[in-house]
């Protein structure tokens, strides 16, 4: 843990007059999967949004590979090798599946077309359901299929850090398993992942380490295996 890939250091984030994060620090080492857990309005989504530059911290700093990225725009953060699977999937509903995937590779638009075409075929290999619906508008897909598309779209970025906000939200248990299968494969391939999840049980099976947030502050952190039985985790969700 000498040189974390991503390091969020004591950030405070405000929405107007409301403070959402109080000195939150999170580190993600290279090749590590880190989960940020917590109940509603605990600030877990805000943590990932700060890393992506979607919200700006008022205090503290954020480092990616030792370089400060707080204050950068989201597109600049993405340009540094980050990809995002947004909360609620946010596929481009009126574009085709293929166009969505191509947009996922927007940050790689300088790459040779052949490499992008190959990546597209790999993505379809990874998610055969998407290949069948390649020319279909993304908005006509089911929720689970849209989640597949959002994942494939982020994968098109070839990221070195993947940020995921609530991958299991609104999905049937079967699809949740599918999502976590794919994430486990990516982890095995060495991808660095920062994820936010309400479904603590699923997240702790995948993650190496986890942080638990309550009311915008970290209440407990540690190895995923140890956290699973921690009473603080239950309290964070039950509000006790």
């Amino acid at each position: 843990m000498a040189d974390p890939f991503l390091s969020i250091e004591a950030i405070d984030v405000f929405y107007g007059p409301v403070q959402a994060l109080f000195g939150v620090s999170v580190t993600v080492g290279a090749g590590e999967v880190v989960a940020v857990l917590g109940g509603n309005a605990s600030g877990k989504s805000t943590t990932v949004k700060a890393a992506l530059g979607l919200v700006q911290p008022r205090q503290g700093r954020i480092l990616l590979e030792g370089q400060r990225i707080d204050g950068l725009g989201t597109h600049q953060v993405i340009a540094r090798g980050v990809a995002s699977i947004p909360e609620g999937r946010r596929v481009f509903a009126e574009m085709t599946v293929e166009e969505n995937l191509r947009l996922g590779a927007y940050a790689r638009r300088g790459d040779p077309p052949a490499a992008l075409a190959a990546a597209l075929e790999e993505a379809f290999g990874l998610f055969p359901r998407l290949a069948e619906r390649r020319r279909q508008a993304a908005g006509t897909l089911s929720g689970g299929e849209q989640q597949m598309l959002a994942m494939a779209r982020a994968w098109m970025r070839r990221p070195r850090l993947l940020c995921i906000d609530e991958p299991s939200m609104g999905l049937s248990p079967l699809f949740v398993d599918h999502v976590y299968d794919v994430l486990a494969r990516w982890k095995a391939a060495g991808l660095t992942i920062l994820m936010v999840e309400q479904n603590a049980n699923m997240a702790l099976q995948l993650a190496d380490r986890a942080y638990v947030l309550r009311n915008g502050a970290i209440v407990v952190q540690g190895a995923a295996a140890e956290l699973a039985g921690d009473p603080e985790l239950r309290k964070a969700y039950l509000g006790g």
Binding site: L52, L54, G73, T74, H75, I78, A79, S84, P86, R90, V91, F92, A93, E94, M95, E99, R102, L103, G104, Y106, A107, R109, R153, R157
Partner: peptide, 22 residues
């Protein structure tokens, strides 16, 4: 690329930003 980025921005600016679109 720019044309597709324009359409993506029109549909969902926040998601577009997360694709790396300015």
């Amino acid at each position: 690329w720019t044309g597709r980025a324009l359409r993506a921005t029109a549909q969902d600016p926040e998601a577009a930003a997360q694709m790396g679109i300015d």
